[in-house]
Design a protein around this nucleic acid. Sequence first.
RNA 1: GGGUCCGUAGCUCAGCUAGGUAGAGCGAUGGACUCUUAAUCCAUCGGUCAAGGGUUCAAAUCCCUUCGGACCCGCCA
Length: 501
Amino acid sequence: MYWADSVVSNLTGDQLVSTGISPSGPIHVGNMREIITGDILYKASLDRGLKSRFIYLCDDLDPLRKVYPFLDSSYAKYVGVPLSYIPSPDGNGKYSDYFLKPFLETLQKINVNVEVISTTGLYKTGKLADAIDTAIKNRETIRKIMHEIAGYDLDESWYPYEPRCSKCGKINSSHVISYEYPYVHYKCEYCGNEGTSDIRTDDGKMPWRVEWPAKWYSLGVTIEPFGKDHAAAGGSYDTGKEIARQVFHINPPVPLMYERILLKGVGVMHSSTGISIPASEVVKFAPPEILRFLIAKNDPSRHIDFDPGLGLLNLIDDYEKIENAYFGLEKPNNENYKRIYEMSRIKILNAPEKINFRHIVNLIQIYKDDTSLLEALRRSGYNKEYIDQALRDEIETAKYWLDKYAPDNIKFSLSTKHIDLSEKEKTILSEFLNSVSGIEWTSENIHNVIYDIIGRNKIPPKDGFSLFYRVFIDRERGPRLGYFLANLDRNYVISRIKDLL
RNA sequence: GGGUCCGUAGCUCAGCUAGGUAGAGCGAUGGACUCUUAAUCCAUCGGUCAAGGGUUCAAAUCCCUUCGGACCCGCCA
């Protein structure tokens, strides 16, 4: 059974799938596993006929942990201050929104319709006040759970609440002196300020290990995917589920641990080390369904090696295979192909997309203007009189990929360079000109003509083919020749050869 | 120290939450053919399912142990 269907197979009643990513920096491909896994679970739950919701909790009341490499040193003063209370690196609005915005735009593109909930907002509107009150009143129980399950040694003065200092703004520097609903009295160790927090607003927050089950409780979360870092023994899921049971008296959500996405040949992605690709970047160089596909087709417990270079083309081929199989045009290569396709596709189609990505990658290297590109596309089966938005997007995507991620050996450009030819080579090209004027301009015909000429002249095929590549793209190898020339205008081909003879 | 995942053909992996004849793609080999940004078609070869033990009429599949690999957690989330 498909992994997502398996997770929801025993559930009954209303479901709430919850995900969360901190907007402390650029949200990268690795983070996308959280949200897309959540989306797939949500869809699987709906497909099972369960009334379901899907939320993304944006942890924007979390403090800035440190001055990340992508921040300038002026951010030192904001370390410890919640992300929603720090100015954006570009000077407009909040820090958290700066990183959230491109992420949300990406979600649009990959058809993830999630309710975005700001954690700051949750606190501010008092939605977590009941949970905070309960947690504080049961702080002995929580302390015990933390000790027994996680090995934490929290002293008796510990409170499951971190006040936000009203003077310096830091949320991780105060200790609680006393609590009387709804007020927490604290002293800030950083600036010495003594103050009062109202738990009915965002004057402070619960520490993560308490906040997580508090969210389950306050929102009614029933399904939650999370990274393996939370899944270790004694980790936050372990303590969270006990706090859920003993303190909040609820059942913890069905967990789904997922592995990381690694960059092929590089390793784990970290915003801090610079080896990461922002999610907003991926949808610029890959069709949007491919990002979904990457995550939908792999079992969450398996890590994913993401290769934005040549591997991307193979991934796209793989997707096209599954799409074709879905429409009965090809034999499936995966027993879950139907579900994988349904979870990956961006919109429902009646037939597979016609234009192959590799094909576009080749065509845009030949045709630099829309008119000739459109002509070439129409020759290869595209049947609109204009370049529609979907095709336009695909072209832009392919261009961007070629420019930034494609390996050199698949790049080429039409050559106008003069090259010196031997007599033998001139003979071959002349014969080609003679044969080619009368044929139908198809890849097969062209290939046959060339093959015949090469054979007749008794030269090694390799040399014969590379001659044509030298003439047209100034390289020794290239795309399949018949296919390639068929995509060029016949008159162009003829005149280019004539120029050289 | 603890945890998760992985180990099945030369390679990448499927099969494992219904235990019932060991699978696919690629590669290799042979053949056809038009060397082609991973050409196409046909055929063949190829596995003690990491190892050991247990449960069972029956184990790649369930349980235990060991070995090897990757990753995660250890008071940050």
